[in-house]
Nucleic acid binder design. Sequence first.
DNA 1: ATAGCCTCCGTACCATGATACGGAGTCAAG
DNA 2: CTTGACTCCGTATCATGGTACGGAGGCTAT
Lengths: 134, 134
Amino acid sequence: MPLTIAKLAEAGGVGVETIRFYQRRGLIDVPPRPEGSGLSGGVRRYGDGDVRRLRFIRSAQKAGFTLEEIAELLRLDAENDRRRARQLADARILALDQKIAELQAAKTALGRLAQACAHGPDGPCPILDAFTTE
Amino acid sequence: MPLTIAKLAEAGGVGVETIRFYQRRGLIDVPPRPEGSGLSGGVRRYGDGDVRRLRFIRSAQKAGFTLEEIAELLRLDAENDRRRARQLADARILALDQKIAELQAAKTALGRLAQACAHGPDGPCPILDAFTTE
DNA sequence: ATAGCCTCCGTACCATGATACGGAGTCAAG
DNA sequence: CTTGACTCCGTATCATGGTACGGAGGCTAT
C-alpha cells in the first residue's frame, strides 16, 4: 500500500512540508521517483516503514530527543548498535527524571499560588514569590 | 545595594545580553540613567526588586510559561489581578499534568528499551518500536 | 485532452529565546 | 589623566523546529 507524501503526512499527523523538512534532515528517506510517463519521473511513493519511522520521530520528540538525536537513533536502529542506543536511552531517562521533578515542583508552586489568590479580593497573592522555596 | 547590569545578570544566573533582551520584552525595567559627569548620563543601576523579578522569570520559564505570559504575570502582580493570575496558574497546572504524564510514559518506554538492548549482543533491541504501546 | 489537484524542489520566512558585535561613552584604579 | 573594564544601544546572527511560496511538472477523472 504505497502512499503519496500527503497520505504519509496524514498518517503521521504532520504536514507535507514537515515530511520534506524531515527528509532534508535525514530522518525520512527520499524514495526514488519511479519511471513515469513524464521527463522527470513520477511521484515518489512511501511505505509502512516510513509511517513507522514518522511515528517514532513524533514519539521520540515527546521524549525530549532533538531531531539530531532522533536521526542518530534511526541510524542505530539500522545498524543494530545496542551499546550506543542504551547510552542514549539512559541519558534521556536521567534528563527526564530531572525534568519531571522540575515540572512537579513548578506544579506544586502554582497550586499554592492559585490557592492563595482564590481567597477573597484581598489577602496575599504574591505572584512574584510563587516559586520562592519557603 | 545598587547593582550594575553585570551584577544583576550574575545574581540571576544569566548573561548581560539576556537582561537587555528581557528589557526589550518588557520583563525587566530599564531604570533611568543617573545624572553623571558625562553628556549622556551615568550607568543604570538595578536593585533587589530586579533580582527578584529576574529569578521569577527563570522559575516561571521552568514552569513552562512563555516570556509573553511571564510579562503578563509581572503586570498582574503589579496590578494585583488575582482572577487572571489564578486563570493562568490553573491553565498551566493542567498543561503540566499532561506534560508530566507524557514524560513519564516516555521514561517508561525508554526504560524498557534500555533493558531490552542490554541483554547480550543479540536478541531484540527494536529502537523504532520503543514507543509503540503494546 | 484539458481542468484541477497533487508533487517536486529550491528558497524564503516564521516564532521563540537567546547570543554576538561594534562603536561610542562612562567609570574607577593606579 | 590614562588605561582597561564595563555600559549603552542598535542591529545582526544563531539554534531549533517548523511553515509557506511559487513555478514547473505529473496524475486522474471527465
